[in-house]
Design a protein around this nucleic acid. Structure first.
Lengths: 339, 339
DNA sequence: AAAAATAATGTAAGCGCTTACATTGTGCTT
DNA sequence: AAGCACAATGTAAGCGCTTACATTATTTTT
């Protein structure tokens, strides 16, 4: 029903008795206009309730000052904190953020990339590195800068700011091995098109190898993301013939689900079984026992990514292609020594 | 640096040896074009890596099929689930969602409203009812349908889908009074420009009044949103001369913070003090003791809001201006009888 | 087989804005 | 007071698309 004629630049111009060019300048370069006309134009704008038509502006000026971000999910807090920091930094530089989510689905992500590009995003923030060559080529052809986050991948020809998922998980696993655990289970997000999940599991395997623990003592259960999925996975994993003494979860949400299920089944943490997470979401310190996990520098990652992106889209040069951030182990109550 | 000439409709047309109109029709009304030309056009599109320029399209066609939503925060899960359902329903009807966040700040919300409108949002989803007349007038003048959610306000001349915050909290408070509590404290989000928080506190007061409990036995502590803020508030509230036997928190996040702090101080829940929340986020059933709270029908609210909005922007009529959803009490471990 | 109806395509105007360039106005200098 | 520099404003083209209308090709009807 939006068929009522909205005020346009021309309406404002007529009302203020100036040309459209002057109105446009008032909006974009106020100091090129004399104070008196500026006042006149400004009041015409408020009287008419005028808002510039973004589409028209982009079409004419060919710059949007918009950055797009596509995150796998908005359903939980994982990406929220980083995104918030990202947004704040963008805003500081005069950019607007457009957010979309992919539901962890590659084809939806591609669709969203196209959508954001067609909406004029000057640059894009993406999570992880796993995606088709086709889409990377598309973005390159369009000359749209991309920054990957949540991964540190100097091996790729892409800008990235993140941490080494493999190394981080390896560090945690080492700690676990130190505590005497040999019988280890993993609840991971689907690794198929999720390089972060894949790298994390890789880290576990690598630690086991270094400690000369056979891989067959490692049960891996893949599931999709969510509390309930974590709980469900726990049920399955706990039933394996040699019950694990520790369950490494690919992230805190899965861990929280596993913990809930353990409680429900009367299995004590960490006395009967240890559980660990990854990400250090707020919930990790709220659940009880508090969750041992890997702390990820969410805010720093978001902020750094924003800065790189701003530099890229404004044509400034960026020193490093890949920035590596450090993760830290958060040893809390949910992890204990093996009995 | 986005200065490379991108392929346009005209380029595609030339390559496929048809007119621009035909290309446009291929994209928008494929069945008006013969199969052979359609194939030719489509391959030209892929070869060129063409993506339509959204701005130009909007400018020419005057419809965006885009709905905007402004939520107070993305930092935690409160609005996430509802938003997800909202988005799914919109997508089903062929609409795209644009999300922005206001950080619970009225002036930022206004800014975001303007931004979304100028970007061509056909309709808007807003949270709560509290905002200036000016902005409501602006939207009305622009003929942009608005749906409010998280509130049920048949008293306003706005579409809304939500629940009665006052009533819901009153119900919970009644339950608490039944359990013998008289000494009640409240940790609420700032009520200043948050009608939901305000209504919830109102519900508490109303229940107390009905039970003939004097209002001065009610300590209210206002704080901003967050786990840490909840914890901090707990410290303060616990120190009042007559220690409350129950703390009603305005939402689950504040409650989670309060619980964390209680544990830290060795105060047992619910033996020493009861704590309740509101919203029934996932964390409510994960913390231990599990949190007594008010369940909010997040997904239904999101879906209903989307349907109304789609009807409104497509000019169909909508039966009811306000839809009232029911909340339910979730009595869990964190609430016990007064000793 | 010609006429009529219909399908497929083309032509060109115009959406609301920015901006290069042209014009006019103002205050200095001499 | 004429001449000049510079500030303020205006003129008009064009950004990439959609769509009303015009034209041409194809099918159906008689």
């Amino acid at each position: 029903m939006k068929n009522q004629a909205l005020p346009t630049l021309a309406d404002v111009a007529k009302r203020a008795k100036v040309s459209t060019a002057t109105v446009s300048r008032c909006l974009n370069f106020p100091d090129q206009v004399s104070a008196s006309t500026r006042d006149r134009v400004m009041s015409a704008i408020t009287e008419l309730g005028y808002t510039p038509n973004f589409g028209a502006r982009v079409l004419a000026a060919k710059r949007t000052n918009t950055i797009g971000a596509i995150i796998p999910t908005m359903e939980n807090a994982i990406f929220a904190r980083g995104l918030q920091a990202f947004q704040e930094e963008l805003k500081y530089h005069g950019f607007t953020l457009l957010v979309a989510s992919s539901s962890y689905r590659e084809e939806i992500e591609e669709e969203q990339i196209h959508k954001l590009v067609s909406r004029g995003a000057d640059g894009l923030l993406l999570i992880g590195a796993h995606r088709s060559d086709k889409i990377y080529k598309f973005l390159e052809q369009r000359n749209i800068p991309v920054v990957l986050s949540w991964v540190f991948r100097p091996d790729l020809n892409q800008y990235s700011v993140g941490f080494d998922n493999c190394e981080a998980m390896k560090e945690l696993t080492n700690k676990i091995i130190d505590l005497g655990h040999k019988n280890i289970a993993v609840i991971s997000a689907s690794m198929h098109n999720n390089d972060r999940a894949y790298q994390r599991v890789l880290g576990i395997k690598s630690a086991l190898k270094d400690a000369n623990i056979e891989e067959q003592s490692l049960t891996i259960y893949e599931t999709s993301y969510g509390i309930d999925e974590g709980a469900e996975a726990f049920k399955k994993v706990i039933k394996t013939k040699t019950r694990p003494t520790v369950i490494l979860c690919g992230n805190d949400v899965l861990a929280a689900g596993a913990m809930r299920q353990a409680k429900k089944m009367g299995i004590r943490i960490p006395q009967d079984i240890s559980i660990t997470g990854f990400d250090d979401l707020q919930l990790a310190s709220i659940v009880s026992p508090s969750l041992t996990t890997v702390h990820v520098p969410h805010r720093k990652m978001g902020k750094d990514a924003a800065q790189i992106l701003v530099n890229l889209v404004t044509g400034r040069k960026v020193k490093e292609k890949s920035i590596k951030l450090e993760t830290t182990l958060c040893i809390r109550e949910s992890l204990g020594p093996v009995k």
